[in-house]
Amino acid sequence: MTSPFEHRLTEAEIAALYQEHGEELRRFLWGVVADWNQVQDIIQTTFRKLVEVGHETQPDSRKAWLFQVAYREALAHRRKQGTHKRVLDRLLESQPEDSTIEDDPLVREEMTATVREAIQQLSPDLQQVLRMRIYEDKTFAQIAEELDIPLGTALGRMRNAMLKLRGKLAWTQRDA
Results as ranks from 00 to 15, higher is better:
residue 176 A to D: 12
residue 153 T to F: 02
residue 118 A to V: 09
residue 116 R to L: 08
residue 74 A to D: 03
residue 132 M to S: 03
residue 149 I to K: 04
residue 147 L to A: 08
residue 164 K to S: 13
residue 145 E to H: 15
residue 146 E to A: 12
residue 35 D to L: 06
residue 11 E to I: 12
residue 64 A to H: 08
residue 38 Q to G: 12
residue 14 I to K: 02
residue 29 L to E: 01
residue 35 D to S: 09
residue 48 R to D: 09
residue 79 R to I: 10
residue 170 A to G: 10
residue 86 R to M: 01
residue 133 R to E: 07
residue 128 Q to S: 07
residue 58 Q to S: 08
residue 146 E to G: 08
residue 69 V to S: 02
residue 26 R to W: 04
residue 27 R to Q: 14
residue 104 D to P: 01
residue 37 N to E: 11
residue 110 E to L: 11
residue 80 K to F: 10
residue 62 R to K: 08
residue 66 L to M: 05
residue 170 A to L: 14
residue 105 P to N: 04
residue 41 D to Q: 14
residue 106 L to C: 01
residue 157 R to K: 13
residue 168 K to W: 03
residue 59 P to Q: 04
residue 140 F to M: 15
residue 76 A to H: 10
residue 81 Q to P: 06
residue 50 L to V: 11
residue 137 D to N: 15
residue 55 H to P: 00
residue 53 V to Y: 00
residue 163 L to Q: 15
residue 158 M to L: 14
residue 53 V to M: 00
residue 103 D to E: 14
residue 171 W to C: 11
residue 68 Q to L: 11
residue 21 H to M: 06
residue 15 A to H: 11
residue 92 L to C: 14
residue 93 E to F: 01
residue 94 S to A: 14
residue 159 R to Q: 13
residue 153 T to G: 01
residue 15 A to Q: 13
residue 122 L to F: 03
residue 7 H to P: 12
residue 145 E to V: 14
residue 102 E to D: 12
residue 106 L to P: 00
residue 94 S to C: 05
residue 114 T to Q: 15
residue 158 M to Q: 11
residue 144 A to M: 10
residue 126 L to F: 00
residue 114 T to D: 13
residue 148 D to P: 01
residue 136 E to F: 07
residue 4 P to G: 05
residue 71 Y to V: 01
residue 33 V to G: 09
residue 137 D to P: 10
residue 129 V to A: 01
residue 74 A to C: 02
residue 9 L to E: 02
residue 164 K to V: 08
residue 86 R to P: 01
residue 117 E to L: 12
residue 32 V to Y: 04
residue 127 Q to I: 02
residue 139 T to M: 06
residue 28 F to L: 06
residue 66 L to D: 03
residue 18 Y to H: 13
residue 121 Q to N: 09
residue 54 G to C: 03
residue 37 N to L: 01
residue 159 R to E: 12
residue 79 R to E: 10
residue 77 H to L: 07
residue 6 E to V: 10
residue 73 E to S: 08
residue 161 A to C: 05
residue 39 V to C: 04
residue 99 S to E: 12
residue 104 D to V: 04
residue 97 E to W: 03
residue 118 A to E: 06
residue 141 A to L: 13
residue 159 R to A: 11
residue 3 S to H: 11
residue 176 A to R: 15
residue 58 Q to E: 07
residue 165 L to C: 11
residue 101 I to H: 09
residue 101 I to Y: 12
residue 42 I to K: 02
residue 104 D to A: 02
residue 47 F to L: 04
residue 151 L to W: 00
residue 151 L to K: 02
residue 104 D to T: 07
residue 92 L to P: 02
residue 61 S to H: 10
residue 119 I to C: 09
residue 34 A to C: 10
residue 5 F to H: 15
residue 136 E to M: 11
residue 37 N to A: 06
residue 45 T to D: 13
residue 2 T to I: 13
residue 5 F to Y: 15
residue 29 L to H: 04
residue 127 Q to S: 05
residue 112 T to M: 08
residue 90 R to E: 14
residue 25 L to C: 05
residue 58 Q to G: 00
residue 89 D to E: 15
